[in-house]
């Protein structure tokens, strides 16, 4: 049997037929991962930038810790967030487990270290370039962080894309805290895991192809934006 070609033809018919269910799942994936990356951007990038600019005791330890956290298995993050959000956990009273909100929270934890680590590297390199100028102009370090975040915005797009890639493709965390509930918390990766475990490999690959397509599309948009921006600001 030629499983692969079967899978791809199924992927195309899935795309061409615009299956309503698949569209819903794709939309939820985008919303959950998009929000997580949004929070990752708001938290991770400034955090990384502060680490790139600031000079304080314990900074190196933090940097190593952050770089290590980039490889944190998503299942571990999922279990930790599960225990926090569980009814018997510290935030149990909010009843957030098995909701889209829980998935956003888990993925935020997942992408913040990654985005912060990339931002730290980018901003630290820029800081080496600008340190004397900014210090001579009497910028306080916090204001320098703001200036550098703005100045590195095009390179920081890489951090955002990396975060998005990680969030969209992880399955461990959303599976545990979302529960893969049909029509409620089922996203592309958990749907793929489910179809795989049902032995429906063609459908799994078809969904995987859709996921890849979505990620590629986002990257293409980002690439075009970045091209435009570099032309604008040399």
């Amino acid at each position: 049997m030629n499983g692969l070609s079967l899978a791809f033809s199924e992927a195309f018919s899935l795309l061409a037929g615009f299956d309503h269910r698949v569209a819903e799942i794709v939309l939820l994936s985008l919303q959950v991962s998009g929000l997580a990356v949004l929070f990752g951007t708001l938290i991770g990038l400034p955090l990384g930038a502060c680490l790139g600019v600031g000079r304080f005791p314990g900074r190196q330890v933090l940097v190593v810790l952050l770089n290590g956290c980039m490889g944190l298995p998503s299942v571990v993050v999922g279990v930790v967030v599960y225990l926090i959000l569980s009814r018997s956990g510290p935030l149990g009273e909010f009843g957030l487990l098995y909701s889209a909100t829980a998935m956003v929270i888990a993925q935020t934890f997942l992408v913040v270290p990654l985005m912060a680590a990339i931002a730290r590297q980018v901003v630290e390199d820029a800081w080496r370039d600008y340190e004397e100028e900014l210090t001579a102009m009497r910028f306080r370090w916090f204001d320098s962080v703001r200036v550098l975040l703005h100045d590195c915005r095009h390179s920081l797009m890489v951090a955002v894309l990396a975060g998005l890639g990680r969030a969209m493709s992880e399955v461990g965390a959303v599976m545990i805290v979302g529960g893969n509930i049909d029509r409620s918390t089922r996203v592309m990766t958990t749907a793929i895991a489910l179809e795989t475990s049902k032995g429906d490999l063609p459908l799994a690959i078809a969904l995987g192809t859709v996921l890849l397509g979505v990620i590629l599309l986002l990257n293409a948009v980002a690439y075009v934006l970045r091209q435009w921006a570099t032309r604008r600001y040399a």
Binding site: Q31, G34, L35, L38, L42, S99, A100, T101, V104, R183, S184
Partner: peptide
């Protein structure tokens, strides 16, 4: 930001 958060809250609560 606020509109993004609102739209997801709306979507989630609609579900």
């Amino acid at each position: 930001l606020t509109s993004a958060v609102f739209s997801v809250t709306a979507m989630v609560s609609a579900a």
